[in-house]
Amino acid sequence: MRQPTVLYVEDEEFDAMFMRRAFERTGLDGSLNVVADGQQAIDYLGGKGVYGDRREHPLPAVILLDLKLPLVSGFEVLAWLREQPGLKTLPVVVFSSSDQPEDKAMASELGANDFVQKPSSALEFPKVVERLRQRWLTA
């Protein structure tokens, strides 16, 4: 059986790179899909265009969502997602460097399931992956 997948919405190239590494280190390699902006996230989740093939781009078990994204922001993705009949129950973990209570409150209001602040060092990403695995990836 395939591993449950994670969709990581992240425009920072290095963050994405370190996250891939962290997934490999945690033995979850192959289960991470990365898209670089909000529109791509919406296209991926809607199975549009290049994301049409669900075997290659399966619906994720959890979405790791950055807030500040080009084109369509993380909040907008979240709001869109919660209105899609087939997707509204997908777990979303907001992953942002913001420490502002307003952002947390807004994320929670829009239906985020968790809020994880980006650690100041990318070396600590494995901790984040561990948290994801424990909370959202165990069957």
């Binding site: 290095f14 963050d15 370190f18 913001s98 502002q100 100041s120 060092s121 990318a122 990403f125």
Partner: peptide, 19 residues
């Protein structure tokens, strides 16, 4: 807001690569 996100991302990467 931009500083929070954009300025800190390279720092995160610097720490990551040095590490």
């Amino acid at each position: 807001y931009s500083i929070t996100h954009d300025l800190r991302a390279p720092l995160r990467a610097m720490q990551g690569f040095a590490g």
